[in-house]
Amino acid sequence: MSAVTLETVPRRPTGAVRTPSLPRLTRVELRKSCDTRAGRWLLAVIVLAVAGTVALGLFTSDDALSLSDHLQFTQLATGVLLPVLGILLVTSEWSQRTAMTTFALVPRRSRVLTAKVLAAAGLALLGVAATLVVSAGAVVLTPLVTDGSADWSLGAAELGGVVLLQLVYVLSGVAFGMLLLSSPLAIVTYLVLPTVFTVLVTTVGALDWVGDWLDLTTAGVPVAEGGADAQGWLQLATASALWLGLPMALGWLRIERAEIS
């Protein structure tokens, strides 16, 4: 009787590796963002850029800036640099040749990619939180170092728009990283291509309507200011589909099918 009982008890195969949970994978990806020398330097540059932007607004503006103004200014720095960190979150696996190890430990590539997307979203939210704290510090210092008074005005719609746009920008960086799988190529393409597109649609009068619907910078202005109407939200959706949805879909498919060496 005891022999039958032992035979019917399922046993875990010898050497079987338990797949990490998605939250654990996300924490690992977050740690990867600052484990490399490039990641640490980029984070340091982001901190310095945010501090410099706030200092410029605090000491060079003729009028006292509100919390909303400081927050908008700080997004100029994080909106450019944080997406680069999102790119490195993907491309570092390929440049450092650790992709084979990663996908050997977690064979389901979509699970790893999902963790990278969640980690990038977490970095975007942390970036907004950090800039909000720095902006609040600037408001506290305003009456101490200038003749102006502290202005804490910040609408919920404005804050929500800043958060949404930061998410879109960082995930766009991840998307370009997935599509190109090369840090230099992805960074240059992400920074140059949208800029050239913006210059083109703003200088050629016949392309104004294209800018309204497909230029992420133009479509994001009403959302960041908290005054977007139904058409404004639709324009942001179409621009996001071009600069975020399309490259991420193509990049995701490429990684799923790529030969790893």
Score class of each variant (00 low, 15 high):
residue 117 V to S: 12
residue 118 L to V: 11
residue 118 L to M: 09
residue 119 A to H: 07
residue 122 G to Q: 04
residue 122 G to A: 15
residue 122 G to W: 07
residue 122 G to T: 13
residue 124 A to F: 02
residue 130 A to R: 08
residue 131 T to R: 11
residue 134 V to E: 02
residue 135 S to Q: 02
residue 135 S to I: 01
residue 135 S to M: 02
residue 136 A to I: 03
residue 137 G to T: 00
residue 137 G to N: 01
residue 138 A to N: 12
residue 141 L to I: 00
residue 141 L to V: 13
residue 143 P to V: 10
residue 144 L to A: 13
residue 144 L to I: 10
residue 146 T to P: 04
residue 146 T to Q: 09
residue 148 G to S: 11
residue 149 S to M: 06
residue 149 S to W: 00
residue 150 A to P: 05
residue 151 D to G: 02
residue 151 D to Y: 09
residue 152 W to D: 00
residue 152 W to K: 01
residue 153 S to F: 02
residue 153 S to V: 03
residue 154 L to N: 05
residue 154 L to H: 03
residue 154 L to R: 06
residue 155 G to R: 13
residue 156 A to S: 14
residue 157 A to R: 10
residue 157 A to E: 13
residue 158 E to F: 07
residue 159 L to K: 07
residue 160 G to A: 07
residue 163 V to Y: 06
residue 167 L to R: 06
residue 167 L to N: 07
residue 167 L to H: 08
residue 169 Y to I: 00
residue 169 Y to F: 15
residue 170 V to G: 05
residue 171 L to T: 12
residue 173 G to S: 06
residue 174 V to L: 12
residue 174 V to D: 02
residue 176 F to P: 03
residue 176 F to K: 04
residue 176 F to T: 15
residue 176 F to V: 15
residue 177 G to Y: 01
residue 181 L to C: 03
residue 182 S to G: 04
residue 183 S to I: 14
residue 183 S to D: 12
residue 184 P to F: 00
residue 186 A to Y: 06
residue 186 A to E: 12
residue 187 I to N: 04
residue 187 I to S: 01
residue 188 V to D: 09
residue 189 T to G: 09
residue 189 T to P: 12
residue 189 T to M: 06
residue 190 Y to N: 03
residue 192 V to F: 02
residue 193 L to W: 08
residue 193 L to V: 15
residue 195 T to P: 08
residue 197 F to M: 07
residue 198 T to N: 14
residue 199 V to F: 15
residue 200 L to F: 03
residue 202 T to A: 15
residue 203 T to R: 12
residue 204 V to T: 13
residue 204 V to Q: 15
residue 205 G to H: 11
residue 207 L to V: 09
residue 207 L to C: 14
residue 208 D to Y: 11
residue 208 D to I: 02
residue 208 D to H: 15
residue 209 W to E: 15
residue 211 G to P: 01
residue 211 G to K: 04
residue 212 D to V: 13
residue 214 L to F: 14
residue 216 L to M: 12
residue 218 T to E: 06
residue 218 T to D: 02
residue 220 G to F: 01
residue 220 G to K: 00
residue 221 V to C: 09
residue 221 V to D: 00
residue 221 V to M: 14
residue 222 P to Y: 05
residue 222 P to Q: 06
residue 222 P to M: 11
residue 224 A to I: 04
residue 225 E to Q: 12
residue 227 G to V: 08
residue 227 G to D: 08
residue 229 D to R: 09
residue 229 D to Y: 06
residue 230 A to H: 05
residue 232 G to V: 02
residue 232 G to E: 01
residue 233 W to I: 03
residue 233 W to D: 05
residue 234 L to M: 12
residue 235 Q to E: 00
residue 235 Q to G: 02
residue 240 S to K: 14
residue 240 S to L: 00
residue 241 A to T: 14
residue 241 A to Q: 10
residue 242 L to W: 14
residue 242 L to Y: 06
residue 243 W to I: 01
residue 243 W to H: 13
residue 244 L to S: 03
residue 245 G to F: 10
residue 246 L to A: 15
residue 246 L to E: 09
residue 247 P to A: 13
residue 250 L to E: 09
residue 250 L to Y: 08
residue 251 G to P: 09
residue 252 W to G: 04
residue 253 L to H: 14
residue 253 L to R: 15
residue 254 R to P: 08
residue 255 I to N: 04
residue 255 I to M: 05
